[in-house]
């Protein structure tokens, strides 16, 4: 079964180990500026969020490429850039709705996540489990479990309704 990167921002501490792992695997240098995965800091909210290519099935970047430099890796499902074919026209960077394909000034080509051929370094480097590589059909499983548990009439939830539940109840009544 295909696997996908699962990103959980609430676990991210902003250490940038993923960015260094990514840049090292792809460019041979520890350099966040060359990473295909990016961690964004939201200072006022006190949160960090990692973000990278989700490997769309009908990939905008791939369809937009005029020279067919972006191809599917059948084993991983990743959309990979063929450096030798890419002409650096950047149309894919416009086509991608998520901004995860970017132009590299140094090489004159575009760069994007290729799942490291099925062994993504960012996931291995993440110290908090904010980035994991899991079966692509199951990325939502834990979130489903959490919601499912909320509906469960456990002793604890009867004894102490959450603040949010109380507010919701008050609004409703």
């Amino acid at each position: 079964m295909l696997q996908a990167l699962k990103l959980e921002p609430e676990k991210c501490t902003g250490c940038l180990q993923c960015e260094m792992a990514c840049s090292y695997e792809n460019e041979g240098v520890f350099n966040p500026a060359k990473s295909r995965i990016k961690v964004f800091a939201f200072h006022d909210e006190g949160r960090f969020a990692p973000y990278t290519c989700t490997q769309c099935d009908q990939a905008w970047c791939m369809h937009a490429c005029p020279v067919e430099a972006i191809v599917v890796n059948a084993a991983t499902g990743a959309k990979e850039v063929l450096e030798s074919v890419c002409v650096g026209c950047k149309v894919c960077t416009i086509a991608c709705p998520f901004g995860t394909v970017n132009y590299s000034h140094d090489s004159g080509k575009v760069i994007k996540c290729d799942l490291c051929g099925g062994d993504p370094w960012c996931a291995k480097a993440c110290p908090t489990g904010a980035i994991t590589y899991v079966a692509s059909d199951d990325t939502g499983l834990e979130r489903m479990r959490a919601w499912a548990q909320q509906g469960l009439p456990s002793a604890a939830s009867f004894a102490a309704p959450t603040e949010k539940a109380v507010q919701t109840y008050n609004r409703a009544s």
Binding site: T13, G14, C15, Q17, G46, R47, T128
Partner: peptide, 23 residues
């Protein structure tokens, strides 16, 4: 009803993340 602490924050490359983010 909120705790003082919102999250841990790490410095660059740190896998400990002792930094505190608060309100």
């Amino acid at each position: 009803g909120r705790p003082n602490l919102t999250a841990n924050a790490a410095c660059f490359a740190c896998t400990i993340a002792c930094g505190r983010i608060s309100t």
